[in-house]
Write a protein that binds this DNA or RNA. Structure first.
Length: 323
DNA sequence: TGCCCATGGTAAT
DNA sequence: TTACCCTGGGCAG
């Protein structure tokens, strides 16, 4: 359930370990009927746009995956870990020469995104020893798609979207998405143009993937607090410099997220605070999931509202929202 | 053990 | 707006 940063990390993982390899594609769960369209073919490109992942095959078709709120990838195999590309929204298991180890040294563990983190933390308690007796390992749980090469395997569970699409459909999906800072060179101008066409509150606009791709509920709340902006202001009434500052902030936060695997949104932390933020979710954000707790700036209890059926956290005082 | 909740998005109402 | 998809962690009991 990654926001955009996690999907970029997953794309990088595929680029590193799967691009250029012939892949066996299967659906252990049986619910992915398109497997035969790409089974036995080679992945030639892996990339993310917003929260969408595309694995392009030498057939010209692409596997299009959206993790939605539950989805996750698990990686395993004889793969190299590194701090910037260890699995996000999933885990990376490493097989060594003799026997195997779970490749989760502290850095990669800390850099793993979202919901599987707790399970990984438990893995940490078990320390380093989920040995794989054989490769590939048996699928665990409801695996929609398994992508297997000679050396690595990726298992996908619980996605909202998992389909094989041709280049025309890929273009349609991409055209429908707003700019992604890591994809669009002219992203800032596209963002401004799209924001100005909407009369919705900025709190909705930031979550609208047609206006800007990759922002989710955490980044939305945090970005609005960082800008000291009310979520309820009409997006198209905001000054250009405010909108440009929001875009610039998103570019920076996304880069940090891709690098660390964490949605780190609090600037200027001391090393000790930063370690705490990495270790404890409750220390990580300005307002997200802090309803009723004192604002870190002014002490006012953080407000929780529902906007479009999603929880919206903000500080009435700092962000100038009338009661 | 069983419920509640979640970093999303779509289709039905 | 609401229901639903579909998975797993957290937590009350």
């Amino acid at each position: 359930m990654p926001e955009g940063h996690s999907v970029h990390r997953i794309a990088a993982q595929f680029a590193r370990h799967f691009v250029g390899s012939v892949c066996r594609i299967s659906s252990p769960q049986g619910r992915f009927g398109d497997a035969s369209l790409i089974d036995g073919h080679t992945i030639v490109r892996s990339y993310a746009v917003g929260k969408h992942l595309f694995l392009e095959f030498d057939t010209g078709d692409s596997l299009h995956v959206h993790l939605g709120i539950y989805g996750a990838w698990d990686f395993a195999g004889a793969v190299q870990l590194d701090d910037t590309v260890s699995a996000a929204g999933g885990r990376m298991v490493q097989t060594a020469g003799r026997g195997t180890v779970v490749g989760e040294h502290e850095d990669s563990l800390a850099s793993i995104g979202a919901p599987r983190r707790t399970r990984l933390r438990m893995g940490e308690h078990d320390s380093v020893t989920v040995a794989l007796d054989s490769f590939p390992p048996d699928p665990v749980g409801q695996v929609r798609v398994r992508i297997l090469t000679a050396n690595a395997v990726a298992d996908l569970r619980g996605p909202t979207v998992c389909e094989v699409v041709g280049p025309v459909r890929v273009a349609e999906i991409r055209d429908d998405l707003g700019p992604d800072p890591l994809v669009d060179r002219q992203g800032e101008e596209r963002f401004l143009a799209r924001v100005k066409r909407t009369g919705t509150p900025i709190g909705r606009a930031l979550m609208n993937q047609k206006i800007v791709a990759g922002i989710g509920n955490v980044y939305r709340a945090e970005m609005l607090f960082r800008a000291r902006l009310s979520p309820y202001l009409a997006a198209n009434t905001l000054p250009d410099e405010t909108l440009r500052a929001l875009w610039t902030d998103w570019v920076g936060l996304l880069k940090i997220g891709v690098k660390t695997g964490q949605m780190l949104t609090m600037d200027g932390l001391t090393p000790a605070r930063k370690r705490a933020a990495l270790a404890h979710r409750e220390d990580r954000h300005w307002v997200y999931r802090r309803a009723g707790e004192p604002c870190r700036i002014c002490g006012t209890p953080i407000t929780l509202d529902i906007m479009e059926a999603r929880k919206l956290y903000f500080c009435r005082n700092c962000q100038g929202v009338a009661a």
